[in-house]
């Protein structure tokens, strides 16, 4: 088990490093030098090359990357070319927004998805078909469109929730929750559908296992077979599905943040990509990767822990 954890940690580190290189190269392939981006359209060629020189843009790529990496491990991701703010500080203030969104959406998806999937598998018949159809519909609905409909229903028609904006938790926990409600629900629609499918399939597979017959042969009550034994067996793929979903939701928050005007990482990617703000793009790609890889690692270890075969070895 310790070896397994060590291997996975190394893999995670390698993943982040690969993405860092990738982000670095992509940023360098962006049109426009940092000097040009920073000084804007009216700047003189001299001023631009001077700033480029100052930023080390003309150094070999190798040097530039390791300089960036050296700074990055110390928590310094450089400064924005647009407004000169520290990228680290900016992202640090944005991370909680996206994290709340993605975590909230994942948790809500998991609860709804597992409930729907288990119900479909356990009840069978017409209810199963109805849930299957409903879930199929949810999968096909574009999240941003669902979001607009929610805004229309819950913010325009009846102002239960605020339509846009984010209130930090420290300011008001209640308003924080209210401001998250619509974006979280929006993201959870597709997520719940995904997890419902995964759960239904895993539960059915669990119920096909022969030990279920042994449990029946020893008069185990039905509820216990379903919710203790079958669900336990199905938990491994379900948790793996949730991990996959978190990755999707974390990236997917771009759209929710755009739609609901939330100052999160997604909004930062969107705006920094539009403005060719190289350090910001690079920083946000790496930070997003670190978060996703870390959460994924934790969930993966959780699945392994759920599996007696792997736990024992």
């Amino acid at each position: 088990m310790a070896l397994f954890v060590a291997k996975r940690l190394l893999m995670a580190l390698a993943t982040v490093l690969v993405v860092a290189v990738l982000a670095f190269l992509l940023v360098h392939a962006m049109p426009g030098s940092p000097g040009a981006v920073s000084l804007g359209a009216g700047a003189s060629q001299d001023a631009i090359s001077q700033l480029n020189q100052q930023l080390g843009w003309n150094d070999p790529l190798f040097t530039q990357f390791f300089r960036w990496l050296g700074d990055a491990v110390q928590g310094n991701l450089g400064n924005s070319l647009i407004d000169g703010r520290s990228v680290s500080a900016d992202l640090a203030s944005r991370l909680p927004v996206t994290a709340s969104l993605a975590a909230g959406a994942t948790i809500l998806s998991a609860i709804l998805g597992i409930a729907l999937g288990v119900t479909a598998a356990v009840r069978g018949g017409l209810l199963d078909q109805a849930i299957g159809g409903f879930v199929g519909l949810l999968v096909a609905l574009p999240a941003f469109w669902v979001g607009i409909i929610f805004v229309y229903l819950f913010a325009v028609q009846s102002s239960i929730f605020p339509a846009t904006g984010y209130v930090p938790f420290e300011v008001s926990p209640q308003d924080w929750a209210m401001s998250l409600a619509l974006p979280v629900i929006t993201l959870a629609v597709g997520g719940a559908a995904f997890i419902a499918r995964q759960t239904r399939a895993s539960m059915l597979e669990a119920l096909q296992q022969e030990h279920i017959r042994t449990l029946r042969a020893t008069a185990t009550p039905t509820w216990k077979i379903l919710y203790v034994h079958a669900l336990r067996y199905a938990s491994l793929p379900i948790v793996a599905g949730i991990a996959l979903q978190f990755i999707g939701l974390f990236g997917g928050s771009v759209i929710a943040e755009q739609l609901f005007a939330m100052p999160g990482l997604g909004q930062a990617v969107q705006s920094s990509v539009s403005t060719h703000d190289a350090p910001a793009v690079q920083g946000v790609v790496v930070i997003a990767t670190v978060v996703v890889v870390a959460v994924n690692l934790v969930l993966e270890l959780a699945t392994k822990f759920l599996d007696p075969k792997l736990r024992a070895s």
Partner: peptide, 14 residues
């Protein structure tokens, strides 16, 4: 295990 959306956006940047 990569945040695909974010990477796609970075690609668009490039």
């Amino acid at each position: 295990s990569l945040p695909g959306t974010v990477i796609i956006l970075a690609v668009i940047g490039a």
